[in-house]
Each structure stands twice: as C-alpha cells, then as structure tokens.
C-alpha cells in the first residue's frame, strides 16, 4: 500500500545546529506510529516541518504522493494534516464550542455578505457546523463543557479538547506532540485508549510523539527513535525495547 505521508531525508538546520538530519519515514493510511527520543532530539522539529511551520533545509515531504514542502501551514491543514502542540495552544478565552467551530472554518462556504445579512446559507451552514461540533464533543466526552472557556478546563480535558479540535479539521493524518505530558497515570491510561479508539473510529493515521515509553510501547505498531537529530532505530515495540542503541540514548540522558 502507498504511504499517506512520507518524509524523504529531511534536514533542518538552525544556523550551525543540525536539529534534524536526513530523517526519512513512511506512514500508512491507518497506521499508529510512535516517534520517540530524548529531550532535544528533534521530534517537535520534525512535526513543524511536516505541518509547514518550518521549511526543511533539505529533503522532501510527500502527502498523498504530492510534495507539500513550502506550503503554508493553513493549506497543509486543509489538505488533511492536523496537529496538537507540546505546550497546549488552545484558544484560551473562547468557549469549547468555539474552539471546535474554528477548526471547521475552512469547510464552510458562505461568504462575508451572507454573514452580514444572515442569509439562509449562513443559518444552514452554521447549524450544521454546530451539530457536528456537538457530536464531536460528545464522543470526546466534553459535551458537559460546551460553554466553558477553554482556559477553565482541567488540564486533562484541555489536552482532550486539543485533540478534538484537531479532529474537527477532518484530518487524514493526526500528529500528537506529547499528549500525555503532565498527566497523571490514570489520565495517561485513559488517553492510551482514546488514541487507539480515535485511530479506529475516524480511520486515520496517527503519528505520536511521546516521552512516556510505556504509552508508546502499548499503542504504537511501529516506532521511530531519534537522537541528536539522527534516526537511530526503527521497528516494532519489542525490537525497540531491546535495541542497545535506544537503551544507550535513553540511559545517556538521565530520563527514561
């Protein structure tokens, strides 16, 4: 099967620093893949290149067989790649409902004049968007929060809302940047189930950056390990666990 997304030897340099060096990966249309590595390894930088926030210094990124390097982040999202952020970036002062509706913006087609004159098209599309948002919030177990401001949600729910918001763009590939960061073991466990469920329910591909090794080993079918910007291992959870290079990379830093 053709991969839905593929990076071909992408490199990112910041001045003299090589944050990512010739990184190549492939993701199938319904894969759940992990991307791990110690702090500063270059994982978030890889995400930023895929989503168009950074332009790779070298290499190419293909999505559905087409090159997306150099496209604006908004265009890439409209094309079907959505993401969450390592440091939650919700629209804090807006309601949960608005957070979700904003993600549906590019699917609406009514114009500014429709909005000003409150035409039939405006009401129809807005009602549909609203209904979709409610449905999504329901399956993400956030419906009791519809009118709360995003900033007033407990931490775990903020993480969940960010995933819901990404899903509201109707992606084919979902990128999650350390979704379990700052969660307690209970929340992490719940999240593990959610990630797998999201992949199955929406039939999308998921690429997961995670620090929590246990989570990654549990949900991912295939794992890429980076260290100092280099790909050092790639394989199933078992192979990765026993890979001496990976053990060294993790023990070399004081984290694990």
């Amino acid at each position: 099967m053709n991969p839905i997304m593929e990076t071909q030897a992408i490199t990112m340099r910041f001045g003299g620093l090589v944050a990512v060096n010739e990184f190549s990966m492939k993701i199938g249309a319904n894969d759940l893949i992990g991307l791990i590595g110690p702090n500063g390894a270059g994982k978030t930088t890889i995400f930023n290149m895929i989503t168009g926030h950074y332009l790779p210094s070298e290499g190419k990124i293909l999505f559905n067989g087409e090159s997306i390097s150099g496209k604006e982040p908004a265009v890439i999202t409209q094309g079907g790649i959505a993401r969450t952020f390592q440091n939650i970036r919700l629209f804090k002062d807006l309601s949960v409902l608005d957070n979700i509706r904003i993600a549906g913006h590019s699917r609406l087609s009514y114009g500014l004049a429709s909005s000003i004159f409150r035409t039939k098209a405006f009401h129809e599309e807005e009602n549909k968007l609203r209904a979709e948002a409610f449905e999504l919030l329901k399956i993400m177990k956030l419906e009791h929060r519809v009118d709360s401001l995003a900033k007033n949600l407990p931490y775990g729910e903020q993480r969940r809302l960010e995933i819901a918001r990404a899903l509201a763009t109707h992606p084919k590939l979902l990128l999650l940047d350390e979704p379990a960061a700052g969660m307690n073991p209970n929340e992490t466990k719940e999240l593990t189930g959610l990630i797998r469920w999201v992949r199955d329910h929406f039939k999308i591909a998921v690429l997961l950056i995670e620090h929590d090794m246990k989570l990654v080993m549990e949900v991912c079918e295939s794992i890429y390990v980076v260290d100092h910007g280099e790909l050092i291992a790639h394989g199933g959870p078992k192979d990765i666990q026993n890979n001496p290079k990976v053990i060294e990379a993790y023990l070399g830093t004081t984290e694990v």
């Binding site: 982040p73 807006l94 904003i102 993600a103 909005s115 000003i116």
Partner: peptide, 27 residues
Amino acid sequence: NIVRGTHGRAIISIREDEIAAESMGIN
C-alpha cells in the same frame, strides 16, 4: 454579525493564538 459568524471566529482566533489558528486551517 461578522464577529458572530465564521469569518469573525477566524479573526478572533488570530488574537487568541496565531500559530494555533494557522494550524486549524485559517489563512
């Protein structure tokens, strides 16, 4: 009326977080 439609929400999302707005497909 602009503010309470999708164009207005797009405008407000920029104030809230420009990078997140871009990532939600907003030009």
